[in-house]
Amino acid sequence: MNASDYEYLRKLFRDHSGLDLSADKQYLIESRLLPLARKCGLSSIDDLLQKMKGGSSRHIAQAVEAMTTNETFFFRDKAPFDHFRDTMIPELLKARAGRKTIRIWCAAGSTGQEPYSLAICLKEMSAQLAGWRTEILATDLSQDVLEKSKAGIYSQFEVQRGLPIQLLLKYFKQNGELWQINAEIRAMVQHRQLNLLHDFSQLGTFDVIFCRNVLIYFDQDTKINVFNRLARSLEGDGFLVLGAAETVVGLTDVFKPCAEKRGLYRPTGARAAVAPMAAAAMPRMAAIGGR
């Protein structure tokens, strides 16, 4: 891949998904796009690039998906789920005692491990949540990934990373080397395709937003824009959860970190003027990556 091809792809991924690749990520592009080229019946990345440059929106959308799909596992990092069980839910049980509903959004739901981990947490707390309505919405840029999430079928490797063996026995059904999460847990999670660069105000407001390990790929302006819009989709006393390597500090004052609870943020009530990136900057592109 020559330098101008690399520049073309960098700009394309930035405009479509906010993915901000530094100049040295050629190997990443190659490792993701070569399998895609093969899947499309093409012999090389060059052939795939030709299709993309020729304006094939299908190939462009698939390339964006291939680049933004992340590795994930059940109860990833553990601490956020401990905070969810020990801090967020107990606080919300008090704060929402009137309406008895809790809305949770996994903004980078990926292949389902995170939303299903949250669903399992809620199931394990069902005695305290009796009479409550809980909702988990999982969104992702990638339709392929959402389909995998909906199916809830995982390999032996996937179910062994982060999932305690007791929970595997309790909530999964074995089918040969594959394990499918029970229908009851699957039914607790709604799925929807969504690009975080686009307007998401129609989703309503949430009590908890998990948005982990997705904004790390975005450039600074995009991060700020998304944070400011996430603040508007979160209840004033809600919780935002970011990945272990992420922060809002130095980017925006609409969220503040919770002392001693790494990755956990609360809204400050500050409001920033915001418009979705995609709607303002690239109305044509939005039609490709969007729903």
Binding site: F73, Q156, F157, Q160, R161, G162, P164, I165
Partner: peptide
């Protein structure tokens, strides 16, 4: 805990 072979470092560390 219980590991189903094959395993790697990530699985051992996780368990």
């Amino acid at each position: 805990e219980y590991i189903m072979k094959p395993f790697d470092k990530a699985i051992i560390a996780a368990k």
